[in-house]
């Protein structure tokens, strides 16, 4: 027993923290979703009955998947480029990538409103150049939501993919070359398979963060761009704690299941590509 304590005591603060601030509230959440005040499934029945909730759920899933996919697609070459630079340049670039992460999502979303608005930079430029007579509607569109979320979450993707790439022994690329691989063959058969795992991890993090987004869609999107987190917030404001909990459970389950599917798919692709 004493030996066990000595071996594990460093973990206890973390376990305690998770217990108090994560596990207990989660159980609370589950309990709240099925109590009114006695046990009932009425909240879940309401979700199933009223089409709007599931529709918003599917849209949330769709937006998050697309944002995660785009982040992986755009972030991968950027991470690759950074990984090719000399050590010092790498640190500088990663530092630059990190800067936006230190600003609140709220501020970054506001910034997008200024860029995309009727009197924003883009419309001013378009009007000034005479490319358009009327200001183009950019703000409060689905496109704005995708764009803003992608920009906000991209650093997470880049940093995750980059750190996976730094783990790859570049001698492997030299080995591939001298054994007969052209540069792109070495990339495809050695580098990409080895960096795919980290890239998918980055995409999964982006996906999970996206699933919980609500400030950005609320600020730059239209009514049609409402996400599940916006609905939860709406219910919380009206003190419908139980129903908000039920929606939160839906969000949680959807996220966890999708992450499992992405992981499986990722492993399959990694194995196929190698």
């Amino acid at each position: 027993m004493l030996a066990f304590i000595r071996r594990t005591w460093l973990l206890w603060p973390a376990i305690g923290l998770l217990l108090v601030f994560f596990l207990v509230p989660s159980l609370d959440l589950i309990q709240a979703s099925v109590m009114n005040p006695d046990f009932t499934l009425e909240h879940f029945e309401r979700i199933a009955d009223r089409k709007v909730y599931l529709a918003v759920f599917w849209r949330t899933l769709q937006v998050s998947l697309i944002v995660a996919f785009l982040a992986a697609l755009v972030g991968y070459p950027i991470a690759y480029f950074i990984n090719l630079q000399p050590r010092k340049t790498q640190f500088l670039l990663i530092f630059l990538i990190f800067i936006p992460l230190w600003m609140s999502v709220l501020i970054r979303s506001y910034a997008w409103m200024i860029v995309l608005g009727r009197d924003g930079i883009i419309n001013t430029a378009l009007l000034g150049l005479g490319l358009t007579e009327e200001p183009v509607r950019l703000l409060f569109t689905s496109g704005a939501v995708y764009f803003a979320m992608l920009q906000i979450l991209l650093p997470v993707q880049i940093v995750t993919a980059y750190s996976a790439m730094t783990e790859i022994d570049m001698d492997l690329m030299r080995a591939a070359r001298v054994l007969g691989a052209r540069p792109w063959q070495a990339l495809r058969r050695v580098f990409i398979p080895l960096s795919l795992d980290g890239t998918i991890t980055g995409a999964i993090i982006v996906f999970m963060l996206s699933m919980g987004f609500f400030i950005t869609p609320a600020l730059v999107g239209g009514r049609q761009d409402m996400m599940l987190a916006n609905l939860i917030e709406f219910q919380v404001e009206r003190l419908n704690w139980s129903f908000a909990s039920a929606l939160a459970i839906l969000l949680l389950l959807g996220t966890v299941l999708t992450v499992i599917v992405i992981r499986r798919l990722g492993n399959l692709i990694t194995r196929r590509i190698a």
């Binding site: 022994d169 001698d171 492997l172 080995a175 001298v178 398979p193 080895l194 190698a274």
Partner: peptide
């Protein structure tokens, strides 16, 4: 052909 110090076998 080349043999590297760290072997450089493809881990995947």
């Amino acid at each position: 052909g080349m043999v590297f110090q760290s072997y450089s076998l493809f881990p995947h």
